[in-house]
């Protein structure tokens, strides 16, 4: 499985466009966080990213954050709901809300960067597959 995921990511990285790469990475992330859910309800604060998520299998983008399984935040959110899984879509928002996030994804220097936060993953009872373990950080 690990090999498969790595191969998938590597293939995507080699031939895909930035959007496709991002979609593939998010697909991996969402599948890892919600391995058993038939439909993953996603709420976004950046409408430009909607197209990326809408084309991911099992993902449904919702308009109301209360209906969502996960919130993908591009902008800072003053009072994010406590019980929701939150994922950052940029380094600044990641830095700002890292106490409440399970992780973040951002581009830096043309390179895709992925971070999962161990404590918050644990709080939400999320266990990531081995292939993503290397992205888990203990303390930030």
């Amino acid at each position: 499985m690990k090999k498969l995921i790595i191969t998938l990511i590597a293939s995507v990285m080699l031939f895909a466009s930035a959007t496709e790469k991002e979609r593939a990475i998010y697909k991996t992330i969402l599948n890892a966080i919600f391995p058993d859910k038939k439909v993953i309800y996603v709420w976004l604060d950046n409408p430009k990213k909607r197209a990326i998520f809408e084309k991911i299998d099992r993902v449904k983008v919702v308009k109301n954050d209360k209906d969502a399984d996960i919130l993908i935040l591009y902008n800072s959110f003053d009072n994010p709901p406590e019980n929701k899984i939150i994922f950052a879509d940029g380094y600044l928002v990641f830095e700002h809300l890292k106490d409440k996030l399970v992780g973040g994804f951002y581009w830096q220097k043309g390179r895709p960067n992925l971070i999962f936060l161990k404590k918050n993953l644990k709080d939400h009872n999320i266990s990531l597959p081995k292939s993503l373990k290397e992205y888990i950080e203990d303390d930030m």
Partner: peptide, 22 residues
């Protein structure tokens, strides 16, 4: 085994000290 910033002289998309970079 992760790589992290010590210094970044970039004018844009700057990384911070000890920030991870994949």
């Amino acid at each position: 085994g992760r790589y992290r910033y010590l210094l970044d002289g970039s004018r844009e998309d700057k990384g911070f000290f000890n920030q991870k970079l994949d």
